[in-house]
Simulated scan of single mutants.
Amino acid sequence: MSHHDPDREAQVPEELAGERFDRALARMFPEYSRSRLKQLIERGEVLLDGGQCRPREAVVAGQTVSLSAEPTPQPSRVTAQALPLNVRHADEELIIIDKPPGLVVHPGAGNPDGTLENALLHHFPELSAVPRHGLIHRLDKDTSGLLVIARSNRAHVVLTEAMQAREISREYLAVVVGSMPAGGTVRASIARHPVDRKRMAVRDGGREAVTHYRVAERFAHHSLLRVKLETGRTHQIRVHMAHIRHPIIGDPVYGRRLAIPRGATEALAEALRGFRRQALHATALSLHHPVTGERISVQADPPEDMQALLDVLRQDTEARGS
C-alpha cells in the first residue's frame, strides 16, 4: 500500500505537452512555490501517472499529476498596514508602484513591519492569496522607483518567468562619482562577499551579471547615468559601478569616503554631505501584460532629494563655466 494520498490531482493540459516535468508542475500548481515543488519532487511526493518522474523529463498531455502535500504555507504573519502607496498602474492582473526611498520591500529581521508588503496587503487584500504576496522582484530599501506586483496566481507565474527570461525591461537613473566620457557595459559575476555576508562583491564563479549604462548628463566631477539591467542580481548596479571606480553618490556600503571636489560651490558641498542614500532610482519599467500581451510602459521621475542633488550639480557645473 502506498502512503501517497493525494491532496491535489490534475491532468497535464494540452498546452504543456512536451514541457519539462518541473516546469509543467509550476504552471499547473502556481499556489506552490518553485522551491517547494523541487523539494516535493526530491522527496517523491509528486507522482506522474502513479510513478516517480525526474524533473527534466517531458510530460505528455492527459497524464495525471498528483501531489501529496499542502501548498506553500503563506507567512501570514505579514499584517496589512495603512501606509501610503503611489500606484502608477493597476488592473486585475498586476500593479505597478513607485516606491519612495527608505521603504523596505519585505518584512525581515530589524523590519518586522512598516514595509511595502504590509502596505500592499492593506490596499490590495486579495494579494494574501498570491504566492509571496505578488512580489516578483525587489528594490533595496534606499533605492526608489518602479516595482511590478502580480495580482493573481496566473500573473505571478507568467511575470516570474518573464523576469527570469529578461523580458521585463527596467531602466534606472544613477548619479555616480566621476565625469564619465561615455557609456559602456559591465560584465562581472557577482557573489556574496567572502567575509562580510551583508555585502555582494565581484567574484569569479559568482552569478553572471550584466549592466549597460550610458551618460545622460555630465557634470564637473560627477555623471548622471541611465542604466539598463540585463540580469537582476542583488545590489548589481551598486556593485558594478563601484567595480569600475564610479561608485554611486551616497552609497553607504559600496561608495567611497565622501570627497568634496576642489572648487565646488558651497551648495554642492552641502548637498553631497547631506545625501545619505545611494542616488539610484528605477525610472522606467516596460513589460507585456501577462494576459492580454499588450505592452505596458511606466516612467517615474526621481524623488525630490535626487532632483535637488541634480539641480545643485547643474548649478556647480555652470558656475565653473564648463
Rank of each mutant, 00 (worst) to 15 (best):
S2F: 10
V12K: 00
E14K: 01
A17G: 07
R20D: 09
M28T: 09
F29S: 02
F29E: 11
P30Q: 02
S33G: 06
R36H: 13
L48V: 07
D49K: 04
G51Y: 14
A61R: 06
A61K: 05
S66A: 08
S66F: 09
L67C: 01
S68I: 06
P73W: 02
R77L: 07
R88A: 13
D91F: 07
I97A: 05
D98G: 10
P100D: 11
D113N: 15
T115S: 07
T115P: 03
H122T: 12
P125F: 02
H133T: 11
G134E: 08
H137G: 09
K141I: 14
G145A: 01
V148Y: 03
I149M: 07
R151G: 15
S152R: 10
S152H: 04
A155I: 03
A155S: 05
V158M: 11
A162L: 01
A162P: 01
I168M: 08
L173H: 06
V177H: 11
G184R: 08
G184C: 07
A191C: 01
R192V: 05
R192F: 06
P194C: 01
K198G: 11
A201E: 12
V202E: 12
E208F: 13
R214F: 15
A216T: 11
H222M: 04
H222K: 14
S223M: 05
L225A: 14
V227G: 12
H235C: 11
Q236Y: 07
V239R: 13
I248Y: 14
D251Y: 05
D251T: 13
G255K: 12
A259H: 15
P261L: 00
E266W: 05
A269Q: 13
A269N: 07
R273I: 04
R277I: 12
S286K: 03
L287W: 01
H289R: 02
P303N: 12
M306L: 05
L313Y: 00
G321C: 08
S322L: 06
